[in-house]
C-alpha cells in the first residue's frame, strides 16, 4: 500500500512523499492493531476474569491483577465437568475417525473413477452439507431412540456425521483429483485392485489432506451444540459446550461468572493451540472446502 503511494508521487512533491508514506504506514499499523485487539480481546478478557478471586470479580480491569486459580480448582472439583471434557474428547475423536474412514473410500470413488451418477452423488453430498440441523432433529431423535443410543455419547458420534461427512468427502475428493494419473496407471498395470491402489498408493499421499480435514472435523464436533443439547439428558453424558451453556441455568442475576470463564478458557485453549500450530493447514482446508465447493 505504502509503496503504491510513494511511486505515484511526482518529482516536485518529493519533499512531502516521506511524510505521506509515514502517515500511511502509521494508519496501516493502527488498523492492524485495532483488528488484532478486536479479534483477541474477548478471549483475553475471559482469561483475566477466570484468574480473579470471586471477591474481585466485579471490579472492571483491563490488565491481569491477580493470579488466583480458585475458579479452576472449583471447576475441576466437579466430577460432571471432568466427565463432560472426557465425553467431548471421545465424541470428537470418534467422529474424526468415522468421517475420515467413510470419506476416504468415497473420495477415491468420486475423485478417480468416472461413472454414471457421480455428479448426482456429489450434489447429494453438497446438499446434505447445507441441511439445517433442526430439519432432521425429530427424525434423528427417533432413529437414535430406536438404536438405543439416546443419552449416550454414541448418539452424538452418529449424528455429527451429518455435518462432518459431506465436508470431508468434498475436500478429500478435490485433493484426490489433483494427484497425478501416472501413479494409478502403474498400479492398474501391475494388476492391483482398487482397494490395494487406495491403501498402498493413495493413502500415503493423502495424509496432509486427511490431517487438515480431520482437524476441521474435530473443531466442528468439539463445538457442536444443538444435537448435544437435544440428544443427551443427564449431566454425566453431556459434552462441554452444553455443560458451559447450562452453568447459567440458575437465576439470570447470579451467574457464577468466574467458573464460567474458567470453563470457557479450558475448552478454548486446546483449540487455540491447534489453530496457532496448524493455521496454514486450517486456512488451506477451509478455502478448499469452500472455494472449490
Amino acid at each position: 500500500m505504502s509503496a503504491n503511494v510513494a511511486s505515484r508521487s511526482r518529482p516536485r512533491r518529493d519533499a512531502l512523499a516521506p511524510l505521506k508514506r509515514a502517515l500511511c504506514r502509521l494508519g496501516f499499523w493502527c488498523l492492524v492493531l485495532v483488528l488484532g485487539i478486536y479479534a483477541v480481546f474477548p478471549f483475553y478478557y475471559a482469561i483475566i476474569t477466570s484468574l480473579k478471586p470471586s471477591s474481585a470479580l466485579f471490579d472492571v480491569s483491563f490488565w491481569i491483577q491477580s493470579f488466583d486459580l480458585s475458579n479452576y480448582r472449583s471447576l475441576f472439583a466437579q466430577p460432571t465437568f471432568v466427565r463432560s471434557i472426557f465425553n467431548s474428547v471421545l465424541v470428537a475423536v470418534c467422529v474424526v475417525f468415522l468421517a475420515l474412514l467413510l470419506a476416504l473410500t468415497a473420495a477415491y470413488a468420486l475423485g478417480r473413477v468416472r461413472f454414471r451418477g457421480r455428479g448426482a452423488v456429489l450434489v447429494i453430498v453438497l446438499g446434505v452439507s447445507m441441511f439445517p440441523q433442526i430439519a432432521v432433529l425429530s427424525g434423528l431423535f427417533e432413529v437414535i431412540r430406536w438404536l438405543g443410543l439416546y443419552n449416550t455419547p454414541w448418539a452424538l458420534v452418529l449424528s455429527y456425521t451429518i455435518f462432518t461427512l459431506p465436508f470431508t468427502v468434498w475436500v478429500l475428493t478435490t485433493f484426490m483429483r489433483q494427484l497425478p494419473h501416472e501413479l494409478e496407471e502403474a498400479a492398474i498395470m501391475d494388476g492391483a485392485t482398487p482397494w490395494v491402489t487406495l491403501t498402498r498408493v493413495f493413502l500415503p499421499l493423502m495424509w496432509p489432506a486427511m490431517a487438515t480435514t480431520g482437524l476441521l472435523a474435530f473443531i466442528a464436533a468439539w463445538n457442536e451444540f444443538l444435537f448435544a443439547l437435544t440428544f443427551t439428558l443427564t449431566d454425566s453424558q453431556r459434552t462441554v459446550p452444553v455443560a458451559i451453556a447450562l452453568i447459567s441455568g440458575g437465576s439470570q442475576y447470579e451467574l457464577p461468572w468466574g467458573p464460567i470463564m474458567a470453563a470457557s478458557v479450558v475448552v478454548t485453549v486446546p483449540l487455540v493451540v491447534l489453530v496457532v500450530i496448524f493455521q496454514r493447514r486450517i486456512v488451506s482446508g477451509l478455502t478448499a472446502g469452500a472455494v472449490k465447493g
Binding site: 474477548p42 458451559i244 489453530v275
Partner: peptide, 13 residues
Amino acid sequence: IPWAIPTVVSAQM
C-alpha cells in the same frame, strides 16, 4: 481465534 472458539463459549464470553 474467534473462528475456532466454540459458539457457546463466545456467547458466554
